[in-house]
Write a protein that binds this DNA or RNA. Structure first.
Lengths: 340, 340
DNA sequence: CTTGCTTTGAGGTGCGCACCTCATCTATCT
DNA sequence: AGATAGATGAGGTGCGCACCTCAAAGCAAG
């Protein structure tokens, strides 16, 4: 039989109450006693039974996802996966909720976050831009005892607090490699389209993309990144302009998280015909475009995996456990028509 | 608060003992009573607390993976993931073990399986060829109350019992598409190498591969599949012969699960230079080859995902629960040097 | 009606732990 | 020495359910 807290108490020569104090990080225990208990844990190979611990808590783990209010199909996919997890998770005493943040107003976002209490929530995964207000709000939440983790959109890596999402530089490099190989021996230029070049994700993807193309495909020229700001009219305008002023465009790279608008615009302009076109994130729009041949490849991160990984990591933090690194690495997936 | 069995008993107008009988499928309950309880479950939205249920069982869930005795790096990866899960799973009262099967002798395999008792094991994931003896052994295990699921290597889909693994036809098609696109406008022939053409997996992959190449790349010719039988000498012999008799080989497709030998042989012959080369499954050997450029792409299924998915499905079967379909679909991943 | 079988109820036990209270003990300071 | 604060022990409760026993009730056939 596996050792229980009772065995641990005996092995450490202390009472169950003290074992409880040490295991759950309560105050009022001498360092020496803490060490004695920890030594006994090692010695007898004690491992807390998480099933019993969860039941004894008498409340479910409550996790939240703080997501931007604006967002298109990829965000919807993520929200669907959160709801799905929540539904299935209740039987396991884990709840997952969505909090929408006003991403235009960092102060308001910070205020929303500061209202969260450890009474209501055990941990939170946050998709938000990197601003001082938000960094500050995160710090204060952690002080209050709420576990946090950056989600999809990275925050500056300050405390090694983990991050759930892909390596965007690698994702850009992956797109670049496919672009180069799919174009083959032809020479020409590549149009890059995104919502905004301001975000860290965009910057990193572009860096990775440029790195591969510039090094390995000297016959290809990457044009300056065009911005859509999520506006179809503007998207159409900039894309049409680019195609007019460059008659040698052989590739299109839709770098942002929301490829729906670029795809629709490109379709209206007949821009994908004869050009290699690559986008990010599987959504209903990109999946359809892959099947029709308008898109040649999609670089993807699995939203279900993102959601479940964030929850597993937050939960492990609550329980002072390590996670399975192999399970939490979010893969940069390549999708083509044959494996969507 | 969520309804408990107590609430359910009251709502159904029966005792706790009867609720227990119905929930755990024990005998000696009239149909009418069963219906009354099920109706009450729907009405009040009862959902069993799996945490409490697991604790009350007073024993961990025990799952096993029945794997062939022969196998190379990919099998090792799977075993590593099983051990890893087992280690982490003990705190959650889930254990995972490995049973090696003598894959040369179906009778012995069947005998090994028939010795397993529901006392020792709750469910088993099986990677084994499709033979009458094995099919029979599986059937009898299920009758004894052990849950089973085919793993990586598919069994004939008889009872819709689920399957953990990729769609091999789709995987072959994916390889075919990448082969066609990477080769580009060049014409020539493609060498296909595998361990044995007898296995269902090989057949399906070849079907998918042929489908794409024959339809969309008329300038490419696929040569008859060469067999290595896991023997480096033989592999070298057949590959060298093929390259001698065809001076227009532009692509190599290593179709089997163990690409290590083909890669080493191709390296010795300098066969990958100037040819598009695609293999299956990420292993130390294929990962290295991707980085050196000997391989252009690897079609992969994640071993960690395979293992955890099998366990989740088996467990759900034990608890009479549904699984999250979105989580259990094993993806056919494409790996290139940039996203390994 | 009795006999024998099936169905149901009532009640208890324990899983391993979190969380709580209160009493006792120990070290430190004045 | 006594006062004070901190450290520890002893013991209890309950989480929601599985699993068990035994008695009682229902039901069918003869």
């Amino acid at each position: 039989m596996r050792p229980t807290t009772k065995d641990l108490a005996k092995a450490a020569g202390v009472s169950l109450a003290t074992v409880d104090r040490v295991l759950n990080g309560r105050s009022g225990v001498r360092d020496k006693t803490v060490r004695a208990v920890n030594e006994a844990i090692e010695r007898i190979g004690f491992e807390r039974n998480q099933v019993a611990a969860t039941l004894a808590r008498q409340r479910a783990y409550r996790f939240a996802f703080a997501l931007p209010r604006s967002g298109d199909e990829f965000l919807e996919e993520i929200i669907d996966r959160i709801r799905e997890f929540d539904k299935a998770g209740r039987a396991e005493m884990v709840e997952a909720d969505v909090i929408r943040l006003d991403d235009r107003d960092p102060h308001r976002t910070a205020r929303t976050l500061s209202r969260l209490s450890p009474e209501d929530i055990d941990g939170i995964a946050i998709m938000a831009p990197e601003t001082p207000q938000i960094r500050d709000a995160l710090l204060r939440m952690r002080e209050r005892g709420i576990r946090t983790i950056p989600f999809v959109t990275n925050q500056q890596e300050d405390g090694g607090e983990g991050f759930v999402g892909i390596d965007n530089r690698g994702a850009g490099a992956t797109a670049g490699r496919l672009m180069g190989r799919f174009i083959g021996p032809a020479a020409g230029s590549i149009v890059v389209l995104t919502e905004t070049t301001q975000s860290r994700d965009s910057l990193e993807r572009r860096l990775g993309f440029d790195g591969v193309i510039n090094r390995d495909y000297p016959d290809l020229t990457i044009l300056p990144t065009l911005e859509t700001h999520g506006d179809p009219g503007r998207a159409q305008h900039v894309l049409r302009n680019a195609l007019h002023s460059h008659d040698d465009v052989v590739g299109l790279y839709f770098m942002g998280a929301e490829a729906r608008i670029p795809i629709e615009v490109a379709r209206a302009l007949g821009a994908t015909e004869g050009r290699v076109t690559i986008a990010h994130e599987r959504t209903p729009a990109t999946e359809r475009a892959l099947r029709t041949g308008e898109l040649d490849a999609v670089i993807h991160q699995d939203p279900g995996h993102l959601v479940r990984s964030a929850i597993r990591i937050l939960r492990a933090k609550c329980e002072n456990r390590a996670t399975l690194a192999s399970q939490e690495r979010i893969r940069t997936e390549i999708l083509i028509a044959e494996n969507v």
